[in-house]
Design a protein around this nucleic acid. Structure first.
Lengths: 200, 200
DNA sequence: TTTATTATTAACCATTCGGTTAAACTAATT
DNA sequence: AATTAGTTTAACCGAATGGTTAATAATAAA
């Protein structure tokens, strides 16, 4: 019970302030537990951070696994990936913040967690996705493009819909509410761009 | 002289550790000055951060200004924007890190600086860009799309080429060297995607 | 040369931080 | 009732941290 309360409070805290900005005492306060409990269960601030990050990453991975079937078509991929990403991010605002900070800090913890996870669970393997993309290229479903650039485009467009929003807003001097319509538009725009730009 | 040395060292420090992770003593050490000098010139850590952020943002804005002429064509826009962004980011690695962290922290300082800058210098106005995009829609140069989604797509694809790289690498289990070829490929891929996806 | 202003320094400081400790409480087992 | 293992707490701690101070050096103006 306490362990769960700590994890929940820590996720909030790390999302808002980052690893170095987060305060152990504040996490304890939010969780309604004694600060010593935090060290009792997680032994250090950094260790608590790793636990939060692991939970966060696994949450998204389980979503992506659902769509990655061997018979997936490229067009479906370009529709479903943005949909899953945007929907997940809109409902888990902490994810973007924690993950963004982690990536800027060279993603050292992120990489370690992915490595562990792949060892435990062989289903979502890199080679599986590679095979899928190669198949689409051979089938003539998509324009020839490096696998890497293709993944970069998908991930960039989805993830950055949240982080990059203030920039686009400032350039155009507008203020976009982050509501259902915003999410729907963003999914559609990304999906269309990917399909027009990458399908044959 | 000292002021400049402090700014340079601070930029490095804030990029690597963020506002809360940065250490004033470390900045002073890097700059080769006494810590008190830092407070003598900038009065507080946060104030120093704002100065660094302002310098950083103005550096990019001056690049973008160069291409934004009233007779710019949409196809040129889709070619030059990724080129400017990617080239600038590849040569100013600190920019991405500072800006990324700032945006995740809700971009409060960023917004304030943009507001000031627009008041001082009317050349790069939001209305100017809006007019350009509206013209392209009327001319039939680009597919109808909200201005906002269009800017989001451009900014996302460019900015995230750096932050999102570890994710794409992990999904495909590859390691991409960040060299001239990488930058060239990324510019081409983004530019092609934008042109195929948004030009009529 | 004197005066006023700007730069620079070493030493200092209050506060906050992550982390520890030792004792006490709780609840199931024997 | 005694033992055991897991849980919880208040009080404590040394090391940093951002920031200050008061004295001094360098420079320019009078």
């Amino acid at each position: 019970m306490s362990k769960e309360k700590i994890l929940t409070a820590a996720k909030e805290e790390f999302a808002e302030f980052g690893l170095s900005g987060a305060r152990v005492s504040r996490i304890a306060e939010k969780a309604g537990i004694n600060k010593a409990m935090l060290f009792y269960y997680f032994s250090s601030k950094e260790n608590l951070y790793k636990s939060v990050l692991r939970q966060t990453i696994l949450g998204l991975m389980s979503q992506i696994k659902k769509i990655l079937t061997p018979d997936l078509k490229a067009s479906e991929f370009f529709e479903k990936m943005p949909e899953i990403y945007i929907n997940y991010f809109s409902k888990n605002k902490d994810f973007i913040k924690i993950m963004g900070r982690e990536l800027i800090n060279d993603g050292k913890h992120y990489k370690a967690i992915i490595r562990e996870t792949l060892e435990e669970d062989g289903r979502l393997t890199p080679s599986g996705i590679k095979e899928l993309i190669n198949k689409w290229i051979k089938n003539g479903e998509i324009k020839e493009e490096s696998q890497f650039n293709m993944m970069m485009n998908i991930v960039s467009l989805s993830l950055f819909s949240f982080i990059g929003k203030p920039i686009a807003e400032n350039i155009l001097d507008i203020n976009i509410k982050e509501d259902e319509i915003f999410y729907k538009n963003r999914i559609e725009s990304i999906s269309n761009l990917l399909k027009r730009g990458m399908l044959k």
